[in-house]
């Protein structure tokens, strides 16, 4: 872990306790998760008890307390996608990867998550892999799609 980077992030927010969420978001964006050492450091620098930081870090969905895989799959479970078959897409992806939402596989290839709405409903059902939107996903074609990732 790069503690210099974390200190820099905290300094960018002037070390204000009110900026806790913004600081955690920046750390999350930088490392794709919140390493324990990072939370210790934030706690020390902002003088906020670690328990309070844990409360915030587990309350908001943007934060992950475990590392993410090389490829992050987000399956849109928004209403428009739901009525267009998103649950089945999710089921197939779960079967292929062996993951439940929120999990990462042992060789750190895929992380699977569901999201509430990606806001491109015209393309539903939508999945997002590594920030790339893939629209009108047919459950039957999903296996083929995931083969493209190493």
């Amino acid at each position: 872990m790069n503690s210099e980077k974390i200190e820099q992030i905290i300094d960018n927010h002037h070390g204000e306790a009110g900026s806790l969420i913004q600081i955690l978001l920046d750390i999350q964006n930088e490392f794709h998760w919140l390493p324990g050492e990072a939370l210790d450091l934030v706690s020390k620098k902002l003088q906020i008890p670690l328990s309070q930081i844990q409360h915030t870090a587990t309350f908001y969905k943007a934060f992950s307390l475990v590392p993410k895989g090389r490829h992050e799959i987000s399956i849109c479970m928004g209403t428009a996608c739901h009525v267009r078959g998103a649950p089945r897409v999710l089921e197939v992806v779960q079967q292929i990867t062996g993951l439940q939402p929120g999990e990462t596989d042992a060789d750190m290839k895929f992380s699977l998550d569901t999201v509430n709405c990606l806001g491109c409903c015209a393309l539903g059902p939508v999945i997002e892999i590594d920030e790339q939107h893939l629209g009108k996903v047919a459950p039957a074609k999903t296996a083929e799609l995931l083969k493209n990732y190493e």
Binding site: E16, A17, G18, S19, L20, I21, Q22, L24, L25, H55, T56, F59, Y60, K61, A62, F63, N116
Partner: peptide, 20 residues
């Protein structure tokens, strides 16, 4: 940071203060 309930105004205010 991704919490639907923060659309509610009193929750939004706490979130602005850096809290859950």
């Amino acid at each position: 940071a991704g919490a639907f309930v923060c659309g509610e105004e009193t929750a939004l205010l706490l979130s602005l203060e850096g809290k859950p």
